[in-house]
């Protein structure tokens, strides 16, 4: 019951955040010097042509009217029409998003699967084989840039030993290498945090109480310490997931995947303003949504949050 109300409250906050972000984006785009219509029309365009483009973009109306339209369209989930392709921004995003999202989800799952168990084991069995493995991994993960890893993976497993396809994006098999490239470095961050957080928890006094109760080491580690240790990990994992959605741009380039990243990159090259505007709002919403979900997780783990 309490949790439900908490979720509801956070959801309202999410809506508010989206409202604020989209307002900011609207004004930032208006404040940037240069008239989009001029850019779109080119140097040779006549005044009439420019006027026509302005009318098409809606930038001829007063700012307040534009803002009202923007908000109205947003509520209708309408992000406008791309200048270059003529398709609606929503449709474009809808085409591209599943790929990027799948990639990020695969990446984060991979990262979490590696990082959390290894981090916990390193903390529980300090100076053991696990700990060394963890240390080596986190060093490597920090040092190796993901695009480089991506290229190496391609060379190794698509060219030299053609286990995975070099191109294409139609099957999950195409996404394995990019997901590894994406998740590898992120996992190192999560691993380090998990280990540090677990070590920290294990040195707290309530662990002494648990020992005084005669609990087994297993209960102490996994029942008492783990939940407390995961609290900061959840937040960071959420942020990492957000990064992956954004960071996928580079990996999408390396693996020639037609994801969101490439769509927005293209929009920027082409100065497709509605697409840029819609894209930024979309990414912002995804970020807020991720945050929202992280908050919920966080509150399940940490009862103190639910009170305030």
């Amino acid at each position: 019951m309490n949790l439900l109300l908490f979720v509801l409250k956070r959801f309202l906050r999410l809506l508010l955040t989206i409202l604020i972000i989209s307002t900011i984006i609207f004004f930032v785009i208006r404040v940037i010097p240069g008239d989009p219509a001029l850019v779109v029309a080119g140097i040779d365009a006549s005044d009439e042509e420019i006027q026509a483009i302005r009318a098409k973009l809606g930038t001829d109306a007063p700012v307040t009217v534009q803002y009202a339209r923007w908000m109205r369209d947003l509520v209708r989930l309408d992000l406008g029409t791309s200048l270059t392709s003529g398709q609606s921004v929503k449709a474009l995003i809808r085409q591209r998003f599943p790929l990027t999202f799948t990639l990020a989800v695969l990446g984060i799952i991979l990262g979490v699967i590696i990082a959390i168990p290894l981090g916990v084991l390193s903390a529980v069995h300090r100076w053991s084989l696990w700990d060394y493995l963890g240390m080596v991994y986190s060093q490597a993960g920090m040092a190796i840039p993901s695009f480089w890893l991506g290229i190496i993976l391609l060379l190794l497993f698509s060219v030299k030993f053609p286990i995975f396809p070099l191109f294409g994006s139609d099957s999950l098999k195409n996404l394995v290498l990019p997901a590894i490239a994406l998740g590898f470095a992120r996992a190192a961050v999560i691993l380090r945090l998990t280990r540090a957080s677990m070590v920290d928890e294990l040195s707290k006094e309530y662990i002494i109480t648990a020992r005084a109760k005669g609990l087994t080491e297993k209960m102490i580690n996994y029942k008492h310490a783990l939940k407390n240790a995961l609290i900061p990990v959840v937040t960071v994992t959420g942020i990492q997931f957000g990064y992956m959605l954004g960071g996928a741009i580079i990996i999408e380039q390396v693996f020639s995947l037609p994801g969101l990243g490439r769509l927005f990159l293209y929009a920027i090259y082409q100065r497709d303003f509605p697409l840029i505007q819609g894209g930024v709002v979309f990414i912002a919403v995804i970020f807020s949504l991720t945050n929202f979900i992280v908050d919920i997780f966080y509150s399940v783990l940490n009862p103190k949050i639910r009170i305030s």
Binding site: K204, E205, Y206, I208, K223, N228, I231, N302
Partner: peptide, 12 residues
Amino acid sequence: FQEPSKYLNPTL
């Protein structure tokens, strides 16, 4: 123990 707020598990 002397300091209960430290010696109780905060999330249990």
